[in-house]
């Protein structure tokens, strides 16, 4: 096993383990910290898969921006244990059934049914082709994404303002 495969397996293992911790721990702050670790591991996989720009965006925007928003939410609310009644067994059974159904569908459709007739990559994925395609062929979705962000910002200000 060469170093490349070793790092892919390491980052995949780390991301899965940290993702399990995200939904398993009780404290919401710990959950957010584990989500940051998951995102950093996935950024490592991105670096391994020739997506350097998206790895950097993942670290800067996701781990640096979105997670700070989540930590702000957690610090703004009163951090008390969310109590209430326990989930009953029926909900666990239904959840695991849904999970098994989706997992079986993914395995069946993506691995058994589909065939990938394409050869291994012939083109090299570098940042220059990425920016060329993004800013030439996909420039309208790019601008629409900025409209979406402005709309989200206005909606957040409207929702979070003090009502008089």
């Amino acid at each position: 096993m060469d170093l490349y495969s070793f790092f892919i397996y390491l980052f995949s293992f780390m991301s899965i383990v940290f993702a399990i911790f995200v939904i398993a721990v009780k404290n919401a702050v710990h959950s957010a910290i584990f989500l940051i670790f998951t995102i950093l591991s996935i950024a490592g996989i991105f670096f391994m898969l020739n997506a350097e720009f998206l790895g950097a965006v993942q670290i800067l925007v996701y781990a640096g921006g979105i997670m700070v928003i989540y930590l702000f939410i957690i610090f703004l609310i009163k951090l008390e244990e969310v109590g209430g009644k326990r989930r009953n067994a029926f909900l666990y059974i239904v959840s695991s059934l849904i999970l098994l159904l989706v997992a079986g569908e993914i395995v069946y459709l993506l691995i058994k049914r589909a065939s990938y007739p394409f050869p291994p990559p012939t083109k090299f994925l570098d940042l220059k082709t990425f920016s060329d395609v993004l800013l030439k062929n996909y420039v309208i979705p790019f601008e629409l994404a900025s409209l979406l962000l402005i709309g989200a910002m206005i909606a957040t200000i409207y929702l979070a303002r003090k009502r008089t």
């Binding site: 939410i73 394409f118 990559p121 990425f130 979070a160």
Partner: peptide, 28 residues
């Protein structure tokens, strides 16, 4: 990476942008 096609990375970038918008609206 498998297909040698850069469009997948572009869609992933848009997914990240939508995730930012979703986090902001969820905050509000």
């Amino acid at each position: 990476n498998y297909l040698g096609d850069v469009k997948g990375q572009i869609f992933a970038l848009f997914v990240i942008a939508v995730a930012v918008a979703e986090a902001a609206v969820a905050f509000g």
